[in-house]
């Protein structure tokens, strides 16, 4: 899967969970840039992404994520396995 596709799909997941219709993510976006993206919605996003891409992340992988770009790369790596 292309990174750009993953970003588009993640963007939809974020919009849905955070209830923000106009949200546009870039690989550099971090939780600091989006007010609604807090520790609570973060877990909900992870769960939704795991379901959507049919992958299972480890706790360490989730902890090491710093921005949306990291998340895209991780999804790409995991879904290729």
């Amino acid at each position: 899967m292309e990174l750009n596709d993953i970003l588009q799909q993640l963007n939809e997941i974020f919009k849905d969970i955070l209830d923000l219709d106009t949200l546009v993510l870039t690989p550099e976006t971090t939780a600091r840039d989006v007010e609604e993206w807090d520790s609570l919605s973060h877990i909900q996003i992870i769960v939704a992404a795991e379901k959507h891409f049919k992958i299972r992340l480890t706790a360490q992988e989730i902890q090491a994520l710093e921005n949306v770009g990291d998340m895209c790369k991780l999804v790409q790596k995991k879904s290729a396995q």
Partner: peptide, 15 residues
């Protein structure tokens, strides 16, 4: 966060 990650399959109850 570690707790919520490990209980994330419980849905809202985990949170």
């Amino acid at each position: 966060t570690p707790l919520a990650i490990s209980t994330r399959n419980w849905g809202l109850a985990g949170i």
